[in-house]
């Protein structure tokens, strides 16, 4: 089994941010390409504004869950959730995260600041990309397209091309409501990475 015969992605976020939709888009595209995919979601209680994780595995894979320390990519719709799930990342793994911070509705809760999280990434030699998903989604036409901005960045940064063509991803996005906005968001996410 070759070292790159599979890819492990952990997608994190807050219930309601659209990470299940995001993972379904990739899953659908993988099926179109006849590539084995496993998308395991943790919801139920968590859809009510709690932390949500989706484990996405592509290629020569059987087990639905990514173990701690074995994710190639940690993709997060929220910065604190990125920090929370850092233990999934493997030694060369990369973090792709939105810059959005959402406060958990707990009285008197203390939150780490963006700068603190970033400096911890750097102290641990973690390769990270922080994407202004909110700005870019509004530019695309709706703040509901933040997940597609992140998908655009993911496609540029992960080795997804080996498994799934960009056409299949775009075909999947076209099945969403408001395909134009979502496609534009995907492009903006991609070109943000190209522009770095």
């Amino acid at each position: 089994m070759g070292i790159n015969s599979k890819i492990n992605i952990v997608i994190a976020g807050v219930g309601g941010q659209g990470i299940i939709t995001l993972s379904k888009i990739i899953g659908d595209a993988a099926v179109k390409e006849n590539v084995k995919v496993l998308v395991a979601e943790t919801h139920g209680l968590s859809q009510r504004g709690g932390s949500v994780e989706v484990h996405l595995r592509i290629g020569d894979v059987y087990a639905p869950l990514v173990p701690k320390g074995e994710a190639d990519i940690l993709l997060s719709m929220e910065l604190i959730e990125a920090a929370r799930n850092i233990d999934y990342l493997n030694q060369n793994g990369i973090v792709i995260t939105s810059d959005v911070i959402l406060r958990p509705p707990i009285p008197g809760v203390k939150l780490p600041k963006k700068e603190e999280i970033v400096s911890e990434f750097e102290r641990n030699n973690i390769k990270y990309y922080i994407i202004p998903t909110k700005d870019l989604s509004e530019k695309a036409g709706s703040y509901l397209s933040e997940n597609m901005v992140l998908l655009g960045a993911l496609y540029k940064l992960a080795d997804l091309e080996k498994f799934i063509s960009i056409d299949s991803i775009k075909e999947s996005i076209k099945t969403m409501r408001n395909p134009e906005i979502n496609l534009k968001a995907f492009e903006l996410g991609s070109s943000f990475i190209t522009g770095i």
């Binding site: 009510r48 709690g50 929370r84 603190e116 641990n124």
Partner: peptide, 11 residues
Amino acid sequence: LNLSIPNRPPS
């Protein structure tokens, strides 16, 4: 990470 990360229970 050397951070204290608050829980985010469903609400």
